[in-house]
Design a protein around this nucleic acid. Structure first.
Lengths: 188, 188
DNA sequence: GTCTATACCTAGATAGAC
DNA sequence: GTCTATCTAGGTATAGAC
């Protein structure tokens, strides 16, 4: 698997989009970072939208596949939540720029890509919510409002990408262990 | 305190910026939402930057004042963290659009406003970090990596604004109670 | 205080030479 | 595959009439 010029462009663009947001990055900015002219980009990609759609759909599918795997396993609700946390950390390590785009620029997607991503996101949240509710009825999880639990865990996991710089300083497995502990058992 | 036309413009712009982001909202968009022409906006504001700076600096100062109050109080680290959670919820209820701008568009600030906001943010995080560390040395808080604790709580609190629509369905005090419980004691 | 008109710039994208 | 040149649309902002 060698890197194509197209992948290179998308990768360079991803960095810029993570830092400034989709609308603040121009095709000329991307071209400068690639050391070429903006017009030349169009020999490799159809347009700016294709970059955004590729970044977001790719990582959204990672999460969807991860959730599919978790649902297929026979485990307690609590174990499944732990697994969700670990999957988020793993995906964040490999796709931090894509996650930034997914979090911050999904609303700038157009057409079918927008519909698809919104649908995947809804499905993901619904599956997560069901696992939490199951954990509550089974007595493994505190009977707090499920939305509060869902939201507090998910908001932490979704913004993990902001840590991608600091990540080098901390081993991924230690991060997983501490993060699982803090999110599940709290801090006291 | 009657609402000036300037405040009205900033308020209308804040809604749009929350939904689409600063760079995706044009002066023409704001003018249409105000039912006037773009040129007329300039009789009330200096430019688009002023809108962003007002939104972000105002809410950043709320957090700074909240933290100042907490630091002045004589309470345990754990009580102070509870208070921080409550303050975030209170500010989110009143400034959800401003928080969206602070979270997503702070990097589009220019000049002194940018410097000021970044400084306030750093100070806030440092104060929060110190409280967590104090709680750990005093034995009130689990000896997990302080950055993990800081990050997991703060990321949840910072994205609370995404709940502003659902908020109506849930009483603020119940939300506070559950959120404090989930973030402090965990979910098990 | 709002309007029309417009200046000036930068955006995404295409055409066609090399 | 990359370039120069260019098109068209839309951006922020100003000038000046009313």
């Amino acid at each position: 698997m060698q890197i194509t010029r197209k992948q290179e462009i998308i990768s360079v663009a991803a960095q810029l989009i993570k830092e400034k947001g989709y609308n603040a990055v121009s095709m000329r900015d991307i071209a400068i970072a690639m050391d070429m002219k903006a017009a030349s980009l169009y020999n490799h990609i159809k347009g700016k939208q294709e970059i955004l759609a590729t970044l977001i759909v790719n990582v959204a599918e990672e999460f969807t596949n991860g959730m599919k795997f978790i649902l297929s396993e026979d485990a307690s609700a609590l174990k499944k939540i732990e697994k969700i946390i670990e999957i988020h950390i793993d995906i964040t390590v490999n796709y931090s720029e894509n996650i930034a785009a997914l979090n911050n620029d999904w609303m700038h997607l157009e057409g079918d890509a927008l519909k698809k991503v919104v649908q995947m996101r809804d499905d993901y949240e619904n599956n997560f919510r069901s696992i939490i509710k199951k954990g509550i009825t089974e007595g493994d999880i505190q009977p707090k409002h499920p939305e509060v639990i869902l939201f507090s865990i998910l908001s932490t996991l979704r913004t993990l990408y902001l840590w991608s710089e600091k990540r080098g300083k901390m081993d991924v497995n230690i991060l997983k262990k501490d993060m699982v502990s803090v999110l599940i058992k709290g801090i006291v």
